[in-house]
Design a protein around this nucleic acid. Structure first.
Lengths: 228, 228
DNA sequence: AGCTGTTAGATTGTCGACAATCCAACAACC
DNA sequence: GGTTGTTGGATTGTCGACAATCTAACAGCT
């Protein structure tokens, strides 16, 4: 129970709803309705919209309204291209700066290898599951010691989460991911940055392909009414 | 004279003030004072803050206030590293996708070659000067056809502008820049992407070095009171 | 019938006021 | 004298109401 921080709480809730798809891609976000639903006034809600807009989860059009940022198949390519770029760069940084702060990365990987795949209706489980995996890549990017990149990667990561929620249902591929992550980390530790980079890119491409296949299978999702 | 769009107008004005250094790095942004100065209420001003926060020009700390995002020498390195990464990537995309949409890039370059260096007290001139140059790089990034990258580059570009305002006073180096830009474009058009990339990186490194030298020369700036 | 102007409803934009919180100066105590 | 508790002012957070704007349905005209 929070004493204060209405905006913060609302941001987190909306964030989760958008990631989990409870608020559909492109859905209108009615200020009055949502304010009533959260039991707050419109002022902090609008603040929350701006924060979410910063993370590209919400798109506001002046005098028109705010919407859940649409996320189509083309965005998958963009997101993965951006990931490829940033994470490749991060590995290059290892080579250049000889950073040895991999403890945090290793920890996140360890956490990931223990986790179990959540059921499709287990929203909270899905979120922690996503967070665990995204943390590995995030820690990797943190090693670049570039705050701009970290910010950017956070945005990427959040939107990636929206994609991955669809992908989560594919069994087995997550086990492969954990293996890949381990191999990448091992290569970095051995100083074989080139091979680490290659494996990373291959891993990302594979994940992207799986994701796109999955989306092709289910071109239209059942529209769920999130009003009540 | 605008009929409506208070927030938009305020955003632009604050943006310019921050870029030009009229609002000092780290300066507190008092809501009441600024609202009065602009002749508006605090609501749209706060909205403006959130928008500027998205662009990393303003940093808000909950229940503490909003501040002009500090920009120290370390940020120069981060910004230029990010530029290097993104623009290198953009050139790689040329190689992969064989994009031939360079007309826009060429136009911006042409515009840049005509421009004259503004006087240090000519604020408007400085802004258009910056915009002209940043457009070249922005158009380059647009060729990547990745909206995430473009958004990110916009943020980079805005913060870069803050750096470059300091740099503007170095005569001659801008002429070099124009030459470099021309050479890079020519290499891309000839399909020599590797050399284009190398020149770009060299150009960025040189600019960064000039910038850092300039900053070293003037370690403390005269603090200007922007309150009245 | 199809198009355009009007109008009513809904929605966003803005405002001024109040409540909660933070900060700094001052006083009391060890 | 230094440290801690208190108190007042300043500032941010939140609210409800009004104004400006947009949307869409309806009526009137060609």
């Amino acid at each position: 129970m929070k004493i204060l921080g209405v905006t913060e709480a609302v941001v987190r809730q909306l964030q989760h709803k958008i990631i989990l798809g409870e608020l559909e891609s492109g859905a209108r976000l009615n200020e009055i309705q949502l304010a009533e639903a959260f039991g707050i006034s419109r002022a902090p809600l609008r603040e929350a919209f701006r924060l979410l807009e910063r993370d590209r989860l919400v798109t506001s059009i002046p005098r028109k309204g705010s919407f859940v940022t649409p996320l189509s198949a083309e965005h998958f390519d963009e997101i993965y291209a951006a990931r490829r770029m940033i994470e490749s760069y991060s590995i290059e940084i290892f080579a250049q700066k000889d950073i040895r702060r991999l403890d945090a990365v290793r920890e996140t990987l360890h956490a990931a290898s223990d986790i179990t795949i959540p059921a499709s209706d287990d929203a909270e489980g899905m979120l922690t599951f996503w967070k665990t995996f995204s943390d590995f890549h995030l820690k990797l990017v943190e090693c670049s010691q570039n705050s701009y990149l970290q910010n950017f990667y956070r945005v990427i990561s959040l939107n990636l989460a929206r994609c991955q929620v669809m992908y989560l249902k594919i069994p087995g591929s997550w086990r492969d991911s954990i293996k890949h992550h381990g191999s990448i980390l091992a290569l970095i530790e051995k100083g074989e940055y080139g091979r680490a980079r290659d494996l990373l890119v291959r891993h990302l491409d594979m994940t992207l392909n799986h994701l796109k296949m999955k989306v092709q299978e289910t071109p239209d999702q059942s529209v769920e009414d999130a009003g009540g």
